[in-house]
Design a protein around this nucleic acid. Structure first.
Length: 775
DNA sequence: CAGTGAGCGAGCTTCCGCTTGACTT
């Protein structure tokens, strides 16, 4: 007999809590939700007032069996899932599935995993809050109805296997609209004037206003030739900087991206490892709250390491709307631990979390900002120099928050001591042409930030949402090279003005999110036919209703009904409208043939078509695929026509033709019947014969390195080099090598053994999978 | 598996949030 059975959501949490509770308590984990709507059906009974049809999925059957066993032996069952609506629903599903007796079941919650918090929770049990459960059911059903009714329309109108949803479709919309802003952006130029002055040290000052034209800049420099420069004012102002709050999931993802270039999912994988090893608190949270224990521990570490004047206790409040705050902020479990074992990535992330947590409990940094205004005789402009001196570093001793804009500001300089009225001599004055900046493309992390601001998605879904829009082909994450841009530069030095044209590289992108043609077409379709769903406020609006349900002020089925009736009517109407949505654009007429040139989405992606569809089928139009980076919405007639020049013969190599073309897998080079893929930066329209030969030779070399070992006993068996390292290949089937094995040393028998072992393992896997399959 | 793009029809795809492994050619 077990006196007390506690059920929590995560096994790592179970392990920790068990330690706090003593031997009268057994703690088990539900591994999240134990049941959900059926995966392959709508799972919502529209005839029975939206009754959800819940199913225990295959991978949860074992967990449920084990929990059932434990419940049978338990005197009291404590449901200790999170306090938010998902957690409440988990508790309710557990109670339903495990058929828990209300008399011996207690619901408890705690926000922090400390002995105190848990014991207090045990002292204050309650029963399941069915209103909160119902708000979760409403959330779940609404998402299912939206996703499973709109997606099939996309299959019909655009392309099979596409998807739409309350969260992913807004994420896509943000990216598409940002791309449009960038496409429509017209940069204007202006002139930024800076002067290098020499006091007791040299310093830089900027002209108070930007100048609009080259003419104005020239006139100004001309004036400066003979002007005197006098210090008009010196202003010193104290300033302070306060530390940012400790990490939530989203801010951790942003900082790890800015500081280390981690992708959102990389960060989560590393954080998961740290959590499972007991080094940090839970990593999926929207709370900036720290437990009293953590605040005390931080105080101890800060005063010991830096002294008392670096310590300032702070309580942070969450500002994000829709935050559910079931957990603490992300912090080290033992903040005095400076380093933890683990991979390089884990250590970096731990260090970041630790420093951010410490900083949040440290003093403000004290600065002194100095501004020097310099009059120019005979001109209404002024030169302004600003400098910053740190008086006290405070939290900056351990942590500096990075920012998204990679602005050209640079470090603020230290200014020399100057007196009002003092005359200054400029060593050089330059006027450089600068350009207004287009809006930035989203990174994974800046998209997460935006979604969080809009209250869309949850800490557990940010990373999966990004994967979804990438996997559907709506969005690509990639680098793009910048382009060279000339700019004018004027310089006044020793009474002489020189003008020159310089060149800078602009617009280079690294790991940014770009919409694809499919993404643009799907977004435009959704914005036109389902404007309510992809409205940035949709989630916020339904969240208000979910809150009303949680407060017992609104029946959940009524809320769903009010949403579903008009929504479903719109779904049916939209589905009937026969216009195919292929994003078609007519580019114009081919001057050579007089035929129409158009672009649209075809069965295999975006294409350009030359000539109209002829119903008699006599004259077939020509087709060509668009290249990477080209968009239906922006491609020009000229670029489109160039695509028909492929495939083209580049020349001869080894007495054989070298041909470049674009196929199913992108641009390729064909030589002696073999295909070689072109690299990302190669353009098939402009690639040279020399470069093609390079690609061919590289491909041949790889081919020779691909085969590590072959066996005379069986020509179907070989050891090959693949994307993930060496593997065994037998008649087109592949097998992983055991760890730490040198592939060159493997004998024929060794290989057969590995294959036999893998095959029996696979059979077992198939069996268990089949057993669970209900359909 | 490499210059595809018609049309028919069967059978499939799809949501968001809670969790952790299994496994990748």
């Amino acid at each position: 007999m077990i006196p007390n059975l506690v059920i929590v959501e995560s096994p790592a949490k179970a392990k920790t809590i068990e330690k706090f509770l003593g031997k009268d308590f057994v703690v088990k984990s539900s591994f999240g939700h134990i049941r959900d709507l059926s995966k392959n059906k709508l799972g919502v009974d529209l005839k029975k007032n939206y009754k959800p049809e819940y199913i225990i999925s295959d991978d949860k059957k074992k967990v449920v069996e084990e929990l059932k066993k434990a419940v049978a032996e338990a005197e009291t069952v404590w449901l200790a899932s999170d306090e938010d609506r998902e957690g409440e629903a988990i508790a309710w599903h557990l109670a339903e599935v495990l058929k828990l007796d209300p008399k011996k079941t207690k619901r408890i919650v705690f926000h922090e995993i400390t002995k105190n918090a848990i014991q207090q929770a045990i002292q204050n049990p309650r029963s399941i809050d069915i209103n909160l459960v119902n708000s979760q059911q409403a959330r779940r059903v609404l998402d299912r109805l939206v996703g499973f009714e709109i997606s099939p329309i996309l299959w019909k109108k655009v392309k099979p296997a596409l998807s739409a949803g309350r969260v992913q479709s807004v994420a896509l919309r943000l990216i598409v609209e940002r791309e449009r802003e960038i496409i429509d952006f017209r940069s204007t130029s202006f002139y930024k004037v800076t002067a290098q002055f020499s006091g007791d040290t040299e310093f830089r000052a900027e002209l108070s206003d930007k100048l609009a034209t080259l003419q104005e800049a020239q006139t100004f420099l001309e004036h400066c030739k003979h002007a005197t420069f006098k210090v008009a004012e010196v202003v010193k102002k104290p300033a302070k900087k306060s530390p940012p709050p400790p990490f939530t999931t989203s801010t951790l993802q942003q900082e790890a991206s800015r500081k280390f270039g981690f992708s959102v999912s990389q960060t989560m994988t590393l954080a998961q490892k740290l959590y499972e090893s007991g080094h940090i608190t839970y990593m999926r949270t929207d709370s900036v709250n720290l437990s009293a224990m953590a605040i005390a521990a931080a105080k101890e570490t800060i005063t010991r390491e830096f002294g008392e004047k670096y310590h300032q206790p702070r309580q942070f409040k969450t500002k994000i709307k829709g935050a559910q705050e079931a957990h603490e902020a992300i912090r080290p479990t033992y903040i005095d631990k400076e380093k933890v074992p683990g991979s390089a990535g884990e250590q970096k992330l731990y260090d970041l979390i630790r420093k951010r947590t410490l900083a949040s409990q440290m003093s403000d940094a004290q600065l002194e900002r100095t501004t020097i205004n310099i009059d120019i005789a005979g001109s209404s402009y002024q030169f302004v120099a600003t400098g910053e001196v740190m008086v006290f570093d405070g939290f900056l001793k351990v942590y500096f928050e990075s920012s998204d804009d990679d602005g050209e500001e640079g470090a603020k300089e230290l200014l020399p001591v100057v007196k009002v009225g003092q005359l200054l001599e400029p060593k050089e004055i330059t006027a450089n042409e600068r350009f207004t900046q287009r809006p930035p493309r989203y990174t994974e992390a800046s998209l997460v930030k935006k979604l969080e601001e809009l209250g869309i998605g949850r800490p557990s879904t940010y990373a999966p949402t990004i994967s979804t829009i990438i996997n559907r082909g709506y969005v690509v994450k990639e680098d793009r090279p910048g382009v060279e841009r000339p700019y004018q530069s004027l310089s006044l030095k020793k009474g002489k003005i020189t003008q020159s044209q310089k060149v800078e590289v602009t617009g280079a992108e690294k790991a940014k999110l770009f919409p694809s043609d499919i993404g643009i077409v799907v977004n435009d379709f959704l914005v036109e036919y389902f404007p309510d769903i992809v409205n940035y406020n949709f989630t916020a609006q339904v969240e208000e209703k979910f809150d009303d349900i949680a407060d017992g002020k609104l029946e959940w089925t009524k809320m769903i009904d009010e949403f579903y009736k008009p929504f479903h009517t719109n779904v049916q109407k939209t589905s009937k409208e026969s216009d195919y949505t292929k994003g078609e654009r007519i580019l114009g007429v081919d001057p050579a043939t007089g035929k129409t040139v158009s672009v649209r989405i075809g069965r295999f992606g975006p294409l350009v078509q030359l000539g109209d569809n002829d119903p008699s089928g006599k004259e077939k139009p020509q087709f060509a695929s668009l290249l990477k980076g080209q968009l239906i919405s922006t491609i020009t007639l000229e670029d489109a026509l160039a695509l028909f020049k492929l495939p083209r013969t580049l020349g001869m190599y080894d007495n054989n033709e070298v041909v470049v073309g674009v196929g199913r897998f992108g641009p390729y080079i064909r030589h002696m019947g073999k295909f070689y893929s072109l690299k990302k930066d190669d353009n098939p329209l402009t690639v040279s014969l020399e470069r093609a030969i390079e690609v061919i030779e590289e491909g041949k070399l790889k081919e020779t390195q691909r085969v590590i070992k072959t066996f005379p006993e069986n020509d179907q068996l070989s050891i090959l080099n693949g994307r993930w390292g060496p593997y065994i290949s037998l008649s087109k089937k592949n097998y992983k090598l055991p760890k730490g094995v040198n592939p060159a040393n493997l004998s024929y028998e060794d290989c057969l053994k590995i294959i036999a072992e893998a095959d029996t393992k696979e059979d077992k896997g198939k069996l268990t999978k089949k057993k669970g399959r209900t359909k």
